[in-house]
């Protein structure tokens, strides 16, 4: 796609690409603690079934993934591995931080060995609060991320400018439970 490479992409084409990208996300499950089980329930159980949202939870390695869900406590010993995981993923890549521990340290806010928030290491797109969040909350996080991808300026992302919305008005930070979903 030469157009994307050069950073010029017509808006209708961007919309089309974004639609396709948002409904074919390969998610890498970076399960660390309690939240990993709720993530397993959301991604691997018949009751919550994430595949109906167009999310495929079974890539063989982070190199094939578009999205990573960091679920659980990130400790200082684990932090380099999380960083390396993120660097292995191909662009464009997205991160959902699941659970209070990954968001801000959670109940271990005063612990000597816990990294207080995975956003100190890697950029995070959607924060899902809860200890642990219910599987439905994670699914809502996925839906919010899909909305974000649909409104993304793909060419700007390619130029390395990070997340740039197509329309300015929708650039609020995303937190699950923060407002109604259209």
């Amino acid at each position: 796609m030469g157009l994307v490479d050069r950073g010029r992409l017509p808006a209708p084409l961007t919309k089309l690409f974004n639609l396709g990208r948002s409904y074919s996300m390969w998610v890498y499950q970076w399960g660390l603690a309690c939240c990993a089980i709720e993530m397993g329930a959301a991604f691997g159980s018949p009751r919550y079934d994430v595949m109906r949202l167009g999310v495929i939870p079974l890539p063989a390695s982070p190199r094939q993934a578009d999205l990573v869900v960091v679920s659980g406590t990130v400790t200082d010993k684990m932090a380099p591995a999380v960083k390396r995981l993120y660097e292995q993923m191909p662009e464009p890549k997205y991160v959902i931080s699941m659970g209070s521990c990954a968001n801000c340290g959670g109940p271990y806010w005063d612990s000597y060995s816990v990294t207080k928030g995975v956003d100190q290491i890697i950029p995070v797109d959607v924060y899902v609060p809860g200890c642990p969040p219910r599987p439905e909350a994670l699914l809502e996080g996925v839906v919010l991320l899909q909305q974000r991808i649909k409104n993304e300026d793909m060419a700007a992302r390619w130029r390395g400018e990070g997340f740039t919305p197509l329309q300015r008005s929708e650039s609020e930070p995303i937190v699950v439970g923060g407002g109604p979903i259209e």
């Binding site: 400790t75 271990y108 005063d110 612990s111 060995s113 816990v114």
Partner: peptide, 14 residues
Amino acid sequence: AGYMHRGYEKLTEV
């Protein structure tokens, strides 16, 4: 081990 060490025994003291 130790990748999930969260320091429980120390945290219980506070």
